[in-house]
Design a binder for these strands. Sequence first.
DNA 1: TGTTATGTACACCGCCCTGTGTGCTTAAGG
DNA 2: CCTTAAGCACACAGGGCGGTGTACATAACA
Lengths: 213, 213
Amino acid sequence: MTELEKGPQGRRRGRGARERIISASQQLFREQGINRTGMDQLCAAAQVSKRTAYQHFTGKDELVAEYLRRFDPSVLSGVFDRTDLTPRERLLAAFDVPPTTPLCPYIGAAVELHDPQHPASQYARDYKEAVAARLADTAREAGAAEPEQLGEQLALLIDGAAARTRVLNADAFPTAAAIAAVLIDNAIPASSPRQPSDDRGTTGSAPVPVGGQ
Amino acid sequence: MTELEKGPQGRRRGRGARERIISASQQLFREQGINRTGMDQLCAAAQVSKRTAYQHFTGKDELVAEYLRRFDPSVLSGVFDRTDLTPRERLLAAFDVPPTTPLCPYIGAAVELHDPQHPASQYARDYKEAVAARLADTAREAGAAEPEQLGEQLALLIDGAAARTRVLNADAFPTAAAIAAVLIDNAIPASSPRQPSDDRGTTGSAPVPVGGQ
DNA sequence: TGTTATGTACACCGCCCTGTGTGCTTAAGG
DNA sequence: CCTTAAGCACACAGGGCGGTGTACATAACA
């Protein structure tokens, strides 16, 4: 019941009701928050009957988890893969986010759901740790003295900018970028642009797609 | 109708129902969140009838705003006033918070209410700006080159630690403190422990009590 | 034709929420 | 005594919520 779009016999009618539901959740959960968005409103926006929605998702909780999992990683997406940038530039590029997103949805979900055991909360935790690991990998590639520490620090800056942007209603990412520049300069022992360092992969790659602010 | 405890003729019966309501909101809103705490539960915890509660507060929104306004600033309280510490030590002491509080209530309120026009959201914004101003004042006192910038940076670190602590379920304040130490060392031009600098007060003092993480 | 899978429309349930209306009790002042 | 006011107990309204039951419509197979 998880896979559709091409059923067991190749049928398809509404052309992806599930996709419309997820798409609507992307918009409404981010615009209004999770708790303030009812299933009635969501189904109406998705042009899907409530009955159908509950055939695709066992409940709102599962939909929320899927909403986070399928969140379009458009903000940070590709930053870590840009080979045209040096590792150091890649680290700084993580703070060049357009002032579009109102709040990192992972933080929002963790606060709104208020339950660390909720699947969405667990995924948010995994995601944040994956981002920190990716940053640490890049920091190691850039030749940082303590890449793990630098990755965690940069991740904290991203979250701080996101939270502060939300509370103050003003873009806080430039401030975070300024701090990041200082930290990076302090951590990289001066002109070690690209070190082969074949001992990469100690932290492993991110198990989830990396994206979002 | 705002003042009681001594009515127009000097009457008083329940000995501060309003205080009990606010006290209960402090506990429940922080433990469970705002949206997940109903007025029924809150009134029961405060040992106050619902009828009485709605005679003191026109609605839950007003109570939420008052909850933030009256929030016991126990975490950062007094940090800025500790004359036994140097300004530099005071800045660092802001990150020595016991891992008690689950989340800065101002961030939580801003996320949960999801409405920048809500009185509580506006107060949260004022509060965060006041904290940054206080940090900037202390940074100026410590002889920082650009105190405004340092204050904003340290405030971002505090918020980042709070948000990240919530999402990861792990104390992120040590990481923030480490960053703060780097920033402070970079901003203070080496051994300017206490500069008279009578040009203080350009940013003005905080209009609200400063406290909380 | 019939079956099966998929989706729809609509009404409905039970629960909890914020918020009130009504009437009663307790105390203080005159 | 009576008046006035603070507070309480109780019930209930109105609405949104998550979630479901029923009956119907469409399409691809067989």
